[in-house]
Simulated assay, not measured.
Amino acid sequence: MQHADSPFVLDHEAFERLVVDELDQLPDDMIDGLDNVVFVVEDRPEDGSLDLLGLYDGWALTERDRYGVGELPDRIIVYREPHLAACADEDELRDEIHTTLVHEIAHFYGIDDDRLHELGWA
């Protein structure tokens, strides 16, 4: 049993399964448009901070005129440790992963943080 003051713990594999589950629950039209994008789970951002939950690393669809053939896939990165630090239990974690996925996928479609904030996804 976990104490309220201890952080929520989940190993990399279990966290990755939750990410896949949440991806499966996203609307097909949101996922089907993702061209040359891979989803990656990493423990934490390069700077080691726990502030960033996810990252879209690539060119938005709206900027892909600069995109060459044979480019490496864009990456949507979900950071495990910041999510665990922000959440008290699995339900909260699932909600946060879901929001992070929608947020980063929206960046792929060229939706910026200001608009995401207006829509309630920031």
Score class of each variant (00 low, 15 high):
G58F: 02
D114V: 14
I76C: 06
R80I: 05
S49Y: 03
R75C: 11
R115V: 05
G58M: 03
G48D: 11
L116P: 09
D74L: 04
D57S: 15
F8A: 00
I105N: 05
A86W: 05
E81R: 06
C87L: 04
L61N: 05
V69P: 13
E96V: 08
E46V: 13
H3L: 11
G33Q: 14
F108T: 01
R94Y: 10
G48E: 06
E42R: 15
D47A: 12
R66A: 14
V102A: 14
E63S: 07
G110Q: 06
E90R: 15
G54Y: 05
D21T: 15
L101Y: 01
L52P: 06
P7D: 04
L34D: 06
E46L: 14
L61S: 10
D95M: 11
G58L: 02
P82A: 06
E42I: 04
D47G: 11
R64P: 02
E22M: 10
P45R: 06
H103N: 03
E16V: 07
R80N: 06
A14C: 09
G48F: 03
L52I: 15
H12Y: 15
A122Y: 06
A4R: 05
R80P: 09
I77K: 09
R44H: 13
P7N: 01
D11T: 08
G68D: 15
D11V: 08
F39C: 07
T62I: 12
V19D: 01
I111G: 00
V9S: 02
Y56H: 00
D29M: 15
L119D: 02
L93K: 10
D89T: 03
M30C: 13
L61E: 06
E13P: 08
